[in-house]
Nucleic acid binder design. Sequence first.
DNA 1: TTCCTCCATGATATAACATAACATTCGCGC
DNA 2: GCGCGAATGTTATGTTATATCATGGAGGAA
Lengths: 144, 144
Amino acid sequence: MEKNIQEAENYCQQNGLNLTPVRRKVLEILLEKNTAIGAYEILDLLRESGFKNQPPVAYRALDFLVQNGFAHKIEQLNSFIGCMHPGKDHSPAFMICRNCDSVSEEEALTRNFSVSQIASKAGFTVEKAVIEARGLCQSCSDLA
Amino acid sequence: MEKNIQEAENYCQQNGLNLTPVRRKVLEILLEKNTAIGAYEILDLLRESGFKNQPPVAYRALDFLVQNGFAHKIEQLNSFIGCMHPGKDHSPAFMICRNCDSVSEEEALTRNFSVSQIASKAGFTVEKAVIEARGLCQSCSDLA
DNA sequence: TTCCTCCATGATATAACATAACATTCGCGC
DNA sequence: GCGCGAATGTTATGTTATATCATGGAGGAA
Ligand SMILES: [Zn+2]
Ligand SMILES: [Zn+2]
Ligand SMILES: [Zn+2]
Ligand SMILES: [Zn+2]
């Protein structure tokens, strides 16, 4: 965990990014759990640590972390989870347990994979899968 | 479209479900577009048609439709889209165009597939993919 | 009929999630 | 010192979703 933070520091230094105290703190918060955390819960934890606690504080830090590959948003939960693939344009698959709320990130290599494969490798039983791709449809591609 | 509604009526009748006026109207609204629609936009359209327009009106109807396979929620957009696989426990994959906002539903047979396969079959260029599975993790399965 | 239960809807309020907009601060190169 | 850009401070508001209790109406049992 402390090692992860250190890696994040290094990555930022090497890439002209600024892991400011509040951003670092949010990253620590996210890495401390294996469950997803909502922005307002993060805000509470920030306040406890003496940071300001207006919503933009959390959302700005989260934007930074998500942008730079230190965190992901879990759309189904409106929550966030730590990651450690900085800068990587990866397409992860998340396994969200309905019983213990744990969220595990599995790598979906090169966007070519099957959910069931990934899940079974992780020992996860899928009850419902959300797959949403963003991009360009046929006709919009043709126009370009 | 009118045919879809008719099928929905039939399915409901055969399964003891009640496609009430407001539920039917919401389904019509969803089926009229090939883009996802937010609950509050639906609410506006309901009001224009003389229905009540407090949030629970839309959310209740949407819950019914989603529960019974007449609609899906698009998590990335906090919006809803019509479907016509009533009762089917299917695992669809959605292709969301960032340019024209169209959303197309592709069938992901038996939860065993690859996003890139589905996308290319549909002529869709994937820029980002969200894959979130809900279910039971290894340890929670073991306890059961 | 009367009463009961279930389902759907009505109605009010509030919770939870997220962003807009503008002001301030601070470090850095000129 | 000055101008600039990045980050943060601050206030306000927008957007999405749910909790809760009240009302109504169809259908069955006694
Ligand atoms: Zn990741
Ligand atoms: Zn679990
Ligand atoms: Zn569907
Ligand atoms: Zn398009």
